[in-house]
Design a protein around this nucleic acid. Structure first.
Lengths: 146, 146
DNA sequence: GGAATAAAGGATATATTTATCTTTAATTAA
DNA sequence: TTAATTAAAGATAAATATATCCTTTATTCC
């Protein structure tokens, strides 16, 4: 559904949000350790998120990434859009160039319904809300390896 | 959502089903032309579908692929399973190894709901039903290029 | 100013997916 | 039996996604 890069991005942002607000910055190393991701690859993803203004960063000692406490909530949709783009969220399920009500692909109707659900979910769920559930221990970002 | 290979598979099967039943076999070249796919890549996909018993084939002149007219309906789920596997339909949305109600990832609940919808859709929609809609002109398998 | 820290950026490597090319095997028809 | 046709199979290439490594830039602390 989401690329690995996008999964890392979502997890990283939730972790940062769960630790941000007290003025401390979260280092890449910390992020990668907490979400169980390859550090350098995660760095690339953070750079994209940073350029897009989804996350802020500071260089140097005690530097790292952060999200302003009173920043507007970030819908998951924004993250997916930044990393995976919107095509797979809006394009034809079977890859037709101009699939529409007018000239629908064989799964147009059925697929639209499912994907509208997904879009609705991505717009409703925010990083901050999910970070809250992480902080309260209702959810986890990684698990023991087998 | 689906890999390119899977999209080709779905389109190919719908086309074959829409033309099968009168005893004629559909050649690879015909399929690739009708669904606008790379012929040799499509061949690989058809080989997988053939090995899995989802489609039948005959070599030689007048040979090709076919689906028995009175064969049991093929749910889309079977096709996706054969080509993309089930992991992305059942695994954790964020890639956790043992995501569950017990130890849920941050998007577990929201994602499960969406994906159950998708699974429901994949189980309900069948190649034969979609082929019928193609035959009756309600849907199309390809469109003019830009 | 110099050393240490941490993100940014660039270059490269690996893995996977997608695509193409060539050969082989099976079948048909003449 | 030979030639033609078509799927199957194997090998290779190209494109993309994932991952790693090295250098540069900004900042902090001493």
């Amino acid at each position: 559904m989401f690329s690995k890069a996008c999964k890392y991005a979502i997890k990283a942002l939730i972790y940062i949000a769960s630790r941000s607000g007290d003025g401390s910055n979260i280092s890449l190393r910390d992020i990668a350790a907490q979400i169980d991701s390859p550090e350098h690859f995660t760095a690339k993803i953070m750079q994209i998120l940073s350029k897009q203004g989804i996350v802020s960063s500071i260089k140097g000692p005690n530097g790292g990434f952060y999200i302003e406490r009173n920043a507007p909530a970030i819908p998951l949709f924004e993250v997916v859009r930044a990393i995976d783009g919107v095509h797979h969220l809006t394009g034809c399920g079977l890859g037709l160039k101009n699939c529409s009500e007018d000239q629908p692909c064989p799964i147009h109707r059925e697929f639209s319904e499912v994907r509208n659900r997904l879009l609705q979910m991505l717009h409703q769920s925010t990083i901050q809300q999910l970070a809250g559930e992480l902080t309260s221990g209702q959810t986890v970002l990684k698990q023991m390896a087998l």
